[in-house]
């Protein structure tokens, strides 16, 4: 692979329209169709309501590198990861991804509460893009890790939230992806399971895969990541070595002393 990057984000900008989801109905469409004034008003509103979640973000991630992302809430971290995962298309710019991506952005996406745990393992696994063969071979591993052996034939709606989280985490982490996207999901379940899941995450991240990692914990970022991107209001403030960028970031928040 040499110098080729696994993920290349080039000049990516993302625009959201804040106003669109409010009350868009047939009535409004009719009014707009027949009234030029309303149309002009809407156009003006549209410009006003534009919100750039990301502006001109560029970076690349080398094979095997663990790239951390820091920034305050709403800085655009999750949007960026969703773009890399292919969930959204950027307004401007290009994203190149080589290899299969495993987005661990949300646990348990696609669980159906009426189905049993066994059925949900297959459903959720297929949502994440795995095939039957792979899931068959990993099934026991998933069950064992989740420690839910006795509940495999129980509909998920009868599970406690902790049990659902365990199951979801176990499915999400069985992969051996080329690119792993992790959006702070380490703390699920009870204390014992939290410890176990953290160890699992570390082994996944340390296993040589390329990782994009978002966390609010500067400590875990520093210990896991090679390089860090600091985002603020959709702009890249700094890219560089984990220690340096994290310290800069914390300094900007006046939080460095606490570390």
């Amino acid at each position: 692979m040499g110098n080729d990057s696994m993920v290349k984000v080039d000049g990516v900008s993302m625009r959201f329209n804040l106003g669109i989801e409010k009350n868009y109905s047939l009535k409004q469409a009719m009014i707009e169709a027949f009234s030029a004034k309303k149309r002009a008003e809407k156009k003006a509103n549209k410009a006003k309501n534009q919100f750039w979640a990301l502006t001109d973000v560029s970076f690349d991630v080398k094979p095997g590198e663990v790239m951390g992302f820091v920034g305050t809430n709403g800085a655009g971290k999750s949007t960026l990861l969703k773009i890399v995962a292919g969930v959204m298309k950027p307004t401007k710019g290009v994203v190149e991804v080589r290899g299969n991506v495993c987005p661990m952005i949300e646990l348990g996406a696609g669980f159906d509460s009426d189905l049993t745990a066994r059925e949900n393992i297959y459903l959720n696994g297929s949502v994440m893009g795995y095939n039957k063969h792979f899931l068959d071979s990993k099934f026991d591993e998933i069950v064992e890790f989740s420690e839910l052996q006795d509940f495999m034939e129980v509909p998920v709606k009868n599970f406690s939230s902790g049990m659902i989280a365990r199951l979801a985490f176990s499915i999400a982490t069985i992969v051996d992806p080329e690119i792993l996207i992790v959006d702070e999901i380490l703390s699920v379940g009870d204390a014992a399971f939290q410890k176990k899941s953290e160890a699992k995450m570390r082994s996944l991240i340390g296993g040589g895969t390329t990782v994009l990692y978002v966390s609010h914990s500067a400590k875990s970022i520093k210990s896991l990541c090679d390089r860090v991107v600091w985002l603020d209001h959709g702009k890249v403030m700094m890219i560089g070595e984990a220690e340096t960028v994290c310290n800069e970031y914390l300094r900007s928040l006046n939080l460095l002393e606490e570390e």
Binding site: D112, D114, L115, E119, Y122, L123, S126, V127, G129, Y130, N131, K132
Partner: peptide, 17 residues
């Protein structure tokens, strides 16, 4: 082809539910 298993799962889910 990659997502045909998902398709199968969605179909069987709807049918079971």
């Amino acid at each position: 082809k990659k997502y045909s298993f998902l398709l199968k799962q969605l179909v069987s889910r709807d049918f079971k539910v």
